[in-house]
Write a protein that binds this DNA or RNA. Structure first.
Length: 569
RNA sequence: GCCAGCUUAGCUCAGAGGCCAGAGCAGCUCUCUUGUAAAGAGCGGGUCGUCGGUUCGAAUCCGACAGCUGGCUCCA
């Protein structure tokens, strides 16, 4: 966003506040910055709705037409308090400032506490804008504070850009995985089953199964071992791990059986630690890499739930690597390489690597000593460098309290970033559970522990993947790869014969559209995004061929063998 | 969790205090026996999210609860 555009957007935010104050003088104003797609302003004490938008837009247009100057003025804190005496949010912001001198901007009779910069006069605003929607937002972004009403505006350089943006948003809505999931009968939710608890219908379960197997087999190929653990555990375990003390709000409540309390697992780690600790370990065994497709349950707040991308029950493609300090860098590097392979295979080629380290100003907020933090941060950094990604983003203060981590964002077909993979080191659990191994000198040593989930969770990944592909899955992972459509019911036997032949080759194929016209069946198949639509009629039966249509394109007739050869490419 | 909006048939939606609540698609039955994006006819299907209130009368007005949507917050 250029400085000029930002100035205009920010100025529009001021004009919107001026307009709101005109129709609702009782409004208490918060802040109003420019955003990527426009601007917003927060208001307290009022509630605007759609019907007000037209009036606001009219008022803003009228302010622009009047070409009113934006007057900047430097004021002391004292003066500022005076000016905003009936604006409590502004008063709080004034108190937050360290400097004595503040700036205010005045436009006609609207005055706002603001650093600027702004256009010099409202007439300079030539962006196409639209008041878009309202939403709740906490003052200064904190749950502790009042909830204000945020009014969002869209602003673009031209009317066409604005129109295009709105159209694109509509298009994106059609790719929403929740919509596609319903249309293609992949998964569902049910009020009586519970919020955020997805159920996979046959096609979705197949898709999930294929994704899971691909990931799991990749890990096994890279010398991981498979483990499996229960879904609940005694509260004693969660107490020892620290989850009960620090994570209880996100856990389902206790299940009481035989005077014991159990909890659904929010994470798989403590089980893996227990298995590691089940006997003494030698340095010769390390690194240990244990993978589990572990279903976990987290009581996410109701408003945070969102289809498959934020459910309450989900399956992590989890693994824990337990290794020595010397092995740390190579293990992280290995995980990075597998991540890249998996994402490339799935067609997500644009990855962004983020190294989250601790805030050097607040070392006391983190668990563990300086030495291990430095070692771990260095190992992650060196792994990224060896991996050839010097363009990683270093984020200070983003580390988990228990160790630094690498998070990986995938960029989808619509340019949106999704944080999916995570590779985290952990100092907390090895210490809490007193994990150790016997080193070359015969001494006990604490190992390093790496948590890594490369898809993140099957659910979240699938949600993103459905939107990335728009429901048009690559053939290898498509839950149904082909429909065989007999032209009339006398071709049904031949259709079944072909179906069995293809099934024998491992294809996921069904006979469809027996009682429908061919056109209708084709239409349905295309709508369902079935990759191959195979038509069989008199002609095919006679020549012992099949007619193949691939995603809207008729490939003509061919022998089954030719079709299979074509598939392999 | 918080703010706002929404909830009518399996799906998408009409119905703005007054006969037995509608349409298209989907489903079922019959007819047609089909050549690459919707054949035709008929039939079935709804405690209008749930509970309570106002009213002679509520899908429609009010309240609570639940769920969904968009945000905020959160994602040890």
């Amino acid at each position: 966003m250029s400085k000029e555009i930002e100035k205009q957007k920010h100025s529009l935010a001021h004009l919107m506040a001026a307009a709101v104050l005109k129709i609702r003088p009782e409004a208490k104003i918060g802040i109003g910055p420019a955003t990527e797609d426009g601007f917003y302003y927060d208001f307290g004490n009022i509630s605007l709705n759609q019907d007000d938008f037209k009036n606001l837009e009219k008022e803003i247009h009228s302010l622009i037409n009047k070409d009113i100057p934006f007057k900047k003025r430097v004021v002391s804190k004292e003066e500022a308090r005076d000016i905003f005496s009936d604006q409590p949010y502004k008063l709080e912001l004034i108190d937050d400032f360290k400097d004595e001198d503040l700036t205010v901007y005045e436009t006609a009779d609207f005055i706002d506490l603001c650093e600027g910069p702004h256009v010099s006069s409202t007439g300079e605003i030539n962006l196409a804008f639209k008041i878009d929607r309202t939403a709740g937002a906490y003052f200064k972004g904190s749950e502790e504070n009042d909830m204000l009403q945020r009014v969002y505006g869209l602003a673009f350089e031209t009317k066409e850009d604005l129109k295009k943006y709105i159209e694109n948003r509509e298009k994106a809505k059609k790719r929403d995985h929740r919509k596609i999931g319903q249309k293609q009968e992949l998964f569902m939710f049910d009020e009586e089953v519970g919020q955020g608890l997805p159920m996979y219908l046959p096609k979705g379960a197949m898709l999930r199964h294929l994704l899971m197997n691909f990931a799991l087999n990749t890990y096994l190929d890279h010398d991981y071992e498979l483990v499996s653990t229960p879904h609940i555990a005694n509260e004693a375990l969660w107490e020892k791990s620290g989850h009960l003390q620090h994570y209880a709000d996100d856990m389902y409540g206790p299940l009481s059986v035989d005077d014991r309390k159990y909890r659904l697992k929010p994470m798989n780690c403590p089980f893996h630690v227990k298995m590691y600790n089940s006997r003494s370990r030698s340095y010769r065994e390390l690194p240990i890499r244990w993978a589990e497709m572990g279903t976990v349950y987290r009581y996410e707040k109701s408003g945070e739930l969102h289809g498959l991308t934020r459910p309450r029950a989900f399956t992590q493609d989890d693994a824990h690597i337990i290794c020595t300090g010397d092995q740390l860098k190579n293990e992280v590097l290995g995980a990075l390489k597998i991540t890249e392979y998996i994402y490339q295979t799935l067609g997500l080629t644009d990855l962004i690597f983020k190294l989250s380290v601790r805030d050097p100003e607040k070392k006391e907020d983190y668990f563990g000593g300086d030495e291990e933090w430095e070692k771990a941060e260095k190992a992650l950094e060196n792994a990224l460098k060896s991996f050839g990604r010097n363009d990683y983003i270093r984020e200070e203060g983003e580390a988990a309290f228990y160790a630094p981590k690498i998070d990986i964002d995938a960029v989808d077909a619509m340019g949106r970033r999704w944080q999916l993979s995570t590779i985290q080191i952990d100092f907390n659990l090895p210490s809490r559970f007193k994990m150790n191994f016997i080193n070359e000198k015969g001494e006990e040593e604490t190992p390093f522990m790496i948590h890594r989930a490369l898809l993140g969770s099957l659910e979240r990944f699938l949600g993103v993947y459905i939107e990335h592909t728009g429901g048009s899955f690559p053939v290898w992972i498509a839950p149904v790869q082909a429909w065989i459509i007999p032209i009339s019911d006398r071709h049904e036997d031949y259709a079944n014969k072909i179906k069995n032949e293809l099934k024998k080759e491992g294809l996921r194929v069904v006979v469809e559209g027996v009682n429908e016209t061919l056109s209708k069946a084709i239409r349905n198949g295309e709508t369902q995004k079935i990759p191959y639509l195979i038509v069989v009629g008199d002609k095919e039966e006679k020549s012992e061929e099949i007619n193949v249509r691939f995603r809207g394109e008729n490939k003509g007739s061919m022998k089954v063998k030719e079709f299979l050869l074509d598939l392999e490419k």
